[in-house]
Design a binder for these strands. Structure first.
Lengths: 108, 108
DNA sequence: TATATCTTTTACTATGTACGAAAAATGCCC
DNA sequence: GGGCATTTTTCGTACATAGTAAAAGATATA
C-alpha cells in the first residue's frame, strides 16, 4: 500500500457504481449505470482498465460467469467490492464531505 | 474544452481549498490548509504542478505579490478561482452528490 | 460456413499526481 | 559586503490514472 494511496476521480466513480449495482455488475452494466447516473459516457475500455487496476489493488474482485447461452456473446466477468474497496470509497467520501460541508450549496 | 474534461481527484481538492482560503492563498498556505483540512500531507511541488495545470485550463489565475520585505523570502504568487473554476468544482460536487446521496452514510 | 451479437482484452496515447532538489529573492549578522 | 539562513517558487523526472479505438473470444442463427 506504500504511502499516499488515494483513489483517482474515476476510480471513485466506478467503485461507487459497484455499490449501486450490487449483483450483476459487469462491464456493460457498469458503463450504462455510470452514464445514467452521472451523464458521463465513457468508452468501455476505460471501464475495464480501471476495474483491472482496482482489482490489482485488492479493492475489487471478479469472476467469470457461466457462459450464459442466451443470445450469443462471451461469458461475462462480474465484479464486486472487497471490504477494502468499501473502506476506500468511504474515506474519499468523508474527505470530500469535510471539504464541502461548510461551503455554500452546489447548484448542480 | 474538448470533450470529457473532468477534474482529477487532487485538482478538486486544490480548487476546493482555494474556496476556503479566499484571499491569501499561495503555495504554502494552500499546502497547509490541505494538510489541516484533510490530513493529507503532500509535497510542495505537487501543489504547484497542479496549480499551474489549473491555470493553463483557465480555472485559476495567479499574480505575483509585492515582494513583502518582512523577514526574507521570495515574492509570493497568489492564486484565485476563476468563475470557470467555481463551476468545475460545483459540477464535480454535484456529480458525487448524485452518486452518494442514496447510499448509507460514510463513517469517516 | 458465414454472419451477427454481446462481451472482454489488448495496445497505445494523453493527462494527472508526486517527489526531491535547484533556483530566486530577501534579511540578518559578522 | 560576503556569507548564511529563510521563505518561496520553479524544474526535471518518474510513475499512476484516464481514455480511445480496434482486435479477439464465444456463442447463436441463417
Amino acid at each position: 500500500m506504500s504511502k499516499g494511496n488515494y483513489l483517482g476521480e474515476f476510480e471513485i466513480v466506478v467503485l461507487s457504481t459497484l455499490l449501486h449495482l450490487g449483483e450483476n455488475a459487469y462491464g456493460m452494466t457498469i458503463r450504462c449505470e455510470i452514464d445514467e447516473h452521472t451523464g458521463r459516457s465513457v468508452s468501455i475500455g476505460a471501464i475495464y482498465a480501471t476495474l483491472r487496476r482496482l482489482e490489482r489493488k485488492g479493492l475489487v474482485v471478479s469472476h467469470l460467469g457461466e457462459p450464459t447461452a442466451e443470445r450469443g456473446g462471451r461469458a461475462k466477468r462480474f465484479f464486486a467490492l472487497e471490504p477494502a474497496g468499501e473502506d476506500a470509497v468511504a474515506r474519499s467520501r468523508a474527505m470530500f464531505a469535510r471539504l464541502w460541508n461548510d461551503l455554500p450549496e452546489a447548484r448542480g
